[in-house]
């Protein structure tokens, strides 16, 4: 689809809004429907659209495989890392109330936001990997 001018231009226009909306959904999970998972999928949709229209080599340029692989792990590490952090601070695993914040409510909110970002990162990168791998050509 590399010669379709309309598609290319529209994609360039659309992708930033998709990414912003994805971040909005992740960050807004506590207030309304949405959260890390849904936001991550929307973020990934932006990348996948870009990959479909501009080709996979271009996708690999903006999102190199090694970075994507590492980020998929880092998302899980961020989530579990919050748990390890709370253990190190003297609480139990994922007991957000011991996190350093103004009060216990804020600590819980901090913990929840961090883990939502963890989910978002992993989901986004794994969905990109899924698209990347399923459209892979040649024998594995």
């Amino acid at each position: 689809m590399k010669d379709q001018v309309v598609l290319r231009v529209m994609t360039k226009l659309l992708v930033p809004y998709m990414l912003v909306f994805g971040f909005y959904v992740i960050a807004h999970g506590e207030l309304g429907p949405g959260g890390g998972f849904q936001g991550g999928v929307i973020l990934a949709a932006g990348f996948i659209l870009y990959g479909i229209v501009y080709g996979k080599s271009e996708l690999h340029r903006v999102a190199p495989r090694r970075v994507i692989d590492a980020l998929a792990g880092i998302g899980v590490l961020l989530y579990a890392g919050v748990g390890v952090w709370t253990m190190l601070l003297g609480g139990r695993f994922l007991d957000y109330s011991v996190l350093p914040a103004a009060d216990y409510g804020a600590a819980e909110a901090l913990g929840m936001v961090l883990v939502e970002y963890g989910v978002g990162i992993t989901v986004c990168t794994v969905m990109i990997t899924v698209y990347d791998m399923i459209s892979e050509e040649g024998r594995p």
């Binding site: 090694r66 692989d69 590492a70 792990g73 899980v76 579990a80 390890v84 139990r92």
Partner: peptide, 25 residues
Amino acid sequence: DFNLPVLLVIVPLLGGVLSVVVGSI
């Protein structure tokens, strides 16, 4: 000792994830 029951699941989980992160770096 305090966190023993969860540590024995978290250690292989984190270990596995780190393996990929380190491998891709």
